[in-house]
Nucleic acid binder design. Sequence first.
RNA 1: GGCGGCAUGGCCAAGUGGUAAGGCAGGGGCCUGCAAAGCCCUUAUCCCCAGUUCGAAUCUGGGUGCCGCCUCCA
Length: 500
Amino acid sequence: MSLTLYNTLTRHKETFEPIEPGKVRMYCCGVTVYDYCHLGHARSYIAWDVVCRYLRWRGYQVHYVQNFTDIDDKILKRARTEGSTMEAVSEKYIAAYFEDMDRLNVLKADEYPRATHTLNGIKRLIHELEQKGVAYAADGDVYYAVRKFPNYGKLSGRKLDDMEAGASGRVENPEEAKKKDPFDFALWKGAKPDEPAWESPWGSGRPGWHIECSAMVREQLGEEIDIHVGGADLVFPHHENEIAQSEAVTGKSLSRYWLHNGMVNVDGEKMSKSLGNFTTIRQLLDEPLEILGGDRFHPMALRLFVLQAQYRKPIDFTGEAIAAAQNSWHTLTEGLLFGFEYGQSLGWSDVADTSFGDPTCMRIPESSEAVRRFQSAMDDDFNSPGGLAVLFELAKELRRAGNLITHQGQADRSAEDLRQDWQILVCLAQVLGLEAKPEPTTTQSEGKNNDTAIEEIIQARQAARKAKNFAESDRLRDLLAAQGIALIDQPDGTTRWHRG
RNA sequence: GGCGGCAUGGCCAAGUGGUAAGGCAGGGGCCUGCAAAGCCCUUAUCCCCAGUUCGAAUCUGGGUGCCGCCUCCA
């Protein structure tokens, strides 16, 4: 079976074949660090995290690079309003980015290059573009001449002439006046007063936005990479421009596959900074929510919410969706914690090991139906909803078995079967970055002391039931329920109980 | 106006030629003094029209609706 993925470049699903067998070079356009990340960012980076995890699970050696844009007008604006510096603003939001992504269990990329650390590469690239005759200097700025690059538009599928005809409401400003063509874009911007600037052959200034990615890809991964990813809103002009910059210099294809994630919508409209309809990740996770009865939204539930849609489709962010995801996560959690909850009573031999429950130490049968179905879904352009269906089936079956153990004393399947299902669930969930940690167990001693008292109450209740004094019986049930003790009357007349 | 994408049950979402996965949310029943758990049953001719085919949610043509990009944007 082979992995297929939808390539924006060709608008088709294609079989994945890396340039170098077994190895994947992957680049992701990261954030411009001038504010906290919102759900759109969360969606994007969770999606690519899963792509990365899945490729590794499939045996590829992945080199994953994601940048930070730390030179930008919006950062400067922020610095001004905060009486701070561009550097300080960047550092603050880079740290915040990592905090947020850690909570969402997004793995670290291998490298995080920054524009401010890539100035030499950027200047070298601009110089080479000038030599190739596709860039021109204009009064301190340097622009890319899009008409000089015959393939311009190949990614986004647009033609310059068509766009020009329909371009609406283009505001005239001094920068526009310097351009030979309205679609030319800045590679280098001449310094303005009170702005950070770097020396260059074209005078003091700073790089344009698109050029940094071309330079960083080249520095970190080389002239040709396997997969380039980012939000669908980056297709044009950002990725189109990246292709123009890189390919004009190298003459090689920048990336074999271009993957783009769908947008997060609110009330059917794209969530974005400019529309002001965004919710930040930390806002969503930190605030008690009415729709959840005052509970907080679990970070893994957010992850689940994202993965319940295929990465290319838009997702609608609604209260109902939050509640559904939270409930779904609860179901999945019960399955994921099964081993911790019941492994001991099932007589599993390794429950006391420190590595117990660690998916990296588990061996699961690749030929099993569940693994096969999971892989076949994910092989189809990372169809995570299909993969999740497998996880839910396993989780629900384990929950059923767990309930039987709690309520009837034993499950109807062998300890070995259950062990295997649990391990498959934990491992596959890990591929999607979904993890449940067991709660720290309530102190054993505290529990033990109460046990005899509880038993006595149960005895009293038994007596009441025998005497058909159900009012008293129910009173005692409620009494214990108030302490978190649940009673289960068995068909044979005995009563089991458990906490929680 | 140009380019692209999407349209499956109350909500979300798989399924790309053989008579509709999964999740969430509901309903009914069995069992139980009550309860818990378990078990059983239960909600779709897949936007509309026409066509291809023995057979289509799945292919073709047309229509309608929604969304994204064309300006910073994940």
